[in-house]
Amino acid sequence: MPEPTGVIHDIGYQRYTGPRLGRRAVFGALYLHGLRTAFGLGRSAKAKIFPWLVVGIVTLVAAAATAVRSQIGEVVMTYAQFADNMSWLVIFFVAVVAPELVSRDLLSGVLPLYFSRPLPRSDYPVAKLLALATALWLLLGGPQLVMFLGAAFTGGDGMRGVWNELLDLLPGLLYAGLWAAVFASVGLLVASLTGKRAFAAGGIVAVFLMTTPIVGVLSIMPSQTINELAFLASPSTLVGSVGAWALGDLLGPQASVPIGGFGPVYAVAAVLLVAGCVALLLQRYRKVAAR
């Protein structure tokens, strides 16, 4: 170990007598760290490429839609439709970011360093989950805000136009929140099962994409009830169906999903899916912490 030649005065070890923050501050630190990690902030340039590529694409799409609307006056997509149209990108974003948030920690063995600190065991997964959900919501909500600003201030209807746009925007943001909640909880649960990032990413894509053919098969079964419930089989169609039921024409007539009168069933299913994933996630970390 070469001794440093510069002047470093060893003032000795200093005991710390200042404040020690409580659970909320610690949870906040974990949450913010997770949110920064999701976008590759404070990480290597390599970790920034993918998240910002996705952010760039969605922003570009929103800007293009806004431009078309202000020039031609034709609404290319509503705020709520935006989330639907971006679902593929959201899946890939989750597949990259969720393993970054949890699988990496599992593989590197850093978890004992967290669990030997005062935070309760459940705070770690919950903070990570909220961070991922927030990242997804920002990913879908940010471009909607761009569309809103573009539409509201080029419409020429004055304050009334802005107000009408706002009434359209808010359901869109709520719908983005539903996408974020479902995709974050499912994605994070899958990622928490393995320390290998590639496996985790593959698993997440598989859960979201491989379930789509099941929907296809069920929707051509010779029973109308099965057809109308078919969209429960895949997270993306589940979210889309809840949207179709709750938002109706905001998603546009062409996007309407034939779910019959089962709308409330879909809403309950979405809530149960999120709750189930969170419960399993907490269960998983109860086991991991004791290792």
Binding site: S116, R117, P120
Partner: peptide, 19 residues
């Protein structure tokens, strides 16, 4: 929680994220 606030733990195995 009170115990862990006053204790520092260095585990035996690798525990550091490489990046």
């Amino acid at each position: 929680a009170q115990v862990r606030a006053r204790v520092g733990y260095m585990p035996e195995h690798d525990a550091l994220p490489p990046d």
